[in-house]
């Protein structure tokens, strides 16, 4: 019997970039499902409380949301460029682009902080009296708003830690022209964070 049709020979190769990518994609899948549970909750409650959701969304600042969307999308671009740069052996450029990504991610969080603080300042937070006076649909909207953007924010922070670590590895030369699968994986993670925001943005800011 021939063995040509099989994955011959990979078993003793210590570096398996293809395997690493497969693992990362699987992990991203689990992340999607993690948020999937929340999106499911959102769709059920939105279906049951359509008017209240429209009303509640008016409280959110669309300008801030748009600004953050632009920031995050651009950071995804710089991340992709950082990978392209290292593939071409341009180490310094890659490091600069990664730092730019980090800077934008930080900017996103600062915006988020300002936004949340303003909300909380206006008394709109889970369990507050102002919120409890509102209709149950609005309470649910803000419950979901805080949990979904909060979980997303947490992912931004994890992504920043990950990219920061990758920057270090790039400076050290561990990530280089021939071995960049780690940076690629971090990039994939960052694009996922971006992608989830692209769904969160219209669901919370644009439904007014």
């Amino acid at each position: 019997m021939s063995s040509t049709e099989h994955t011959a020979g990979v078993s003793h190769v210590h570096r398996d970039d293809e395997g690493a990518r497969l693992g990362m994609w699987l992990f991203l899948f689990t992340e999607l499902l993690l948020f999937g549970g929340l999106f499911l909750l959102y769709s059920v409650y939105r279906y049951l409380n359509q008017d209240a959701f429209h009303l509640a969304a008016k409280e959110l600042n669309t300008l801030f949301g748009t600004f953050n969307t632009v920031i995050l999308l651009t950071s995804s671009l710089t991340m992709a460029l950082a990978i392209a740069a290292i593939q071409r052996g341009k180490k310094t450029l890659s490091v600069v682009l990664q730092l730019a990504t980090l800077f934008m991610a930080f900017g996103f969080l600062v915006n988020k902080y300002i936004e949340w603080t303003a909300k909380i300042h206006h008394g709109i937070y889970p369990g507050s009296e102002i919120l409890l006076d509102k209709s149950s649909g609005e309470i649910l909207f803000f419950g979901l708003y805080y949990s979904m953007t909060g979980l997303h924010g947490l992912h931004v922070i994890i992504g920043m830690a990950l990219i920061g670590y990758m920057t270090r590895l790039t400076v050290n030369g561990v990530i280089n022209k021939d071995s960049f699968v780690k940076l690629e994986s971090a990039g994939l993670y960052w694009h996922l964070v971006d992608l989830i925001w692209i769904f969160l943005f219209p669901l919370f800011y644009l439904i007014t």
Partner: peptide, 15 residues
């Protein structure tokens, strides 16, 4: 995640 990747990537020749 580990098992799926392992089964896809690390089978011996002929497996």
């Amino acid at each position: 995640l580990n098992f799926v990747t392992t089964v896809h990537r690390l089978r011996a020749p002929g497996m």
